[in-house]
């Protein structure tokens, strides 16, 4: 572990923090330039101009934009996510509950899909251009070619309605026993797995096949190692960086891209929460959700880069 490595990692972390601030500005500006007036939409078309003006003053909407931005930012940094306009409740606890559900679903989808895709990728390389390789490629491609909502409905129709193994509505609540919680998320987790599997599997396959062209793979072959040993010991460690990158992108999708899946399965996660409040024009909630999604995305990409840096022996063990 050398100083240049720490410097690289430090740089990458600093960059992510800067990026996050830039995104917060974008989100804030974006929600400000939306047409219409929040006070108006809360009170409805029938409200008197006085009532609207009062509410505007009460919500602080008359302050200049930058004052409101820093107010919001300061609140976020001190853990105060503000108050939802639609029901007057603090946003923090509501989001915490939803985020927990989303992360729970994402975690189990990831726990299944990441090892599965990497193992499938390794098997595909082992049987390159053979029947097994083509079967794996074709079936994962078929899965990714279908839109995620369509896979969701297919699973609901066959597994929930026809076979009756799982319920079509993934309701979870506080204090639900672990096992029934797992049963509840089985279908959305399966849907997510099918959606993210192909990309990770194909990247694993491509990255390893790329490394298989190297001279050191030939060296390993000329030592009499078997193909599986070569793939696992000599090719895989050198293919980690691109695989990590695509794994992290898919992890990010599992957290921030699941809006449609949550709506289909009526799962009380972040996505549904966001969609509900967009419909209600609840700007503070939308801003907070947007920023959390951005933070997850940026954070995971940062981790991907850091792991890639760490996986490079030249940087880990400088001359």
């Amino acid at each position: 572990m050398g100083a240049p490595l720490l410097k690289l990692v430090g740089k990458r972390i600093g960059l992510s923090i800067g990026l996050l601030f830039a995104v917060s500005v974008l989100i804030f500006v974006g929600t400000q330039i939306l047409p219409g007036d929040v006070a108006q939409s809360i009170l409805g078309q029938a409200a008197t101009p006085e009532a609207v003006a009062n509410l505007r003053a009460q919500l602080g909407l008359n302050d200049p934009a930058y004052v409101r931005y820093f107010h919001w930012l300061f609140g976020l940094l001190t853990g105060n996510l503000g108050t939802a306009l639609s029901n007057g409740l603090p946003i923090g606890p509501a989001i915490a509950e939803r985020l927990k559900n989303t992360l729970f679903l994402a975690f189990w989808a990831a726990a299944v899909s990441i090892p599965l895709s990497i193992i499938l990728g390794l098997i595909a390389v082992r049987h390159k251009n053979g029947f097994i390789d083509k079967l794996i490629s074709a079936s994962t491609l078929a899965a990714i070619s279908l839109p995620d909502f369509f896979i969701g409905y297919l699973l609901i129709y066959f597994v929930a309605v026809k076979l009756g193994w799982f319920t079509s509505v993934s309701t979870v609540y506080d204090g639900m026993p672990f096992l029934s919680r797992m049963v509840a998320i089985a279908l959305p987790a399966l849907t997510l797995t099918l959606v993210v599997l192909a990309q990770m599997m194909r990247m694993t396959r491509a990255a390893i096949l790329n490394v298989m062209q190297s001279a050191y793979v030939e060296t390993a072959e000329l030592k009499g190692l078997s193909r599986s040993e070569i793939i696992w010991r000599h090719a895989f460690p050198n293919a980690v960086a691109p695989i990590i990158n695509v794994v992290m992108l898919n992890l990010a999708y599992l957290v921030v891209g699941v809006v449609v899946i949550e709506v289909i399965f009526v799962y009380p996660g972040m996505g549904q929460y966001l969609v509900d409040h967009v419909a209600k024009r609840d700007v503070p909630v939308v801003q907070d959700c947007g920023l959390i999604f951005a933070a997850v995305y940026i954070g995971l990409n940062m981790l991907a880069d850091i792991f890639s840096i760490l996986s490079n022996p030249r940087l880990r063990h400088p001359k």
Binding site: A215, Y216, E218, T219, L222, R233, H234, P237, N238, P313
Partner: peptide, 16 residues
């Protein structure tokens, strides 16, 4: 039979 390649720099696995 063992083999010594032209470019040892490329013939060693950089990860080990």
């Amino acid at each position: 039979v063992c083999y010594v390649a032209q470019s040892a720099a490329a013939a060693f696995n950089p990860a080990h």
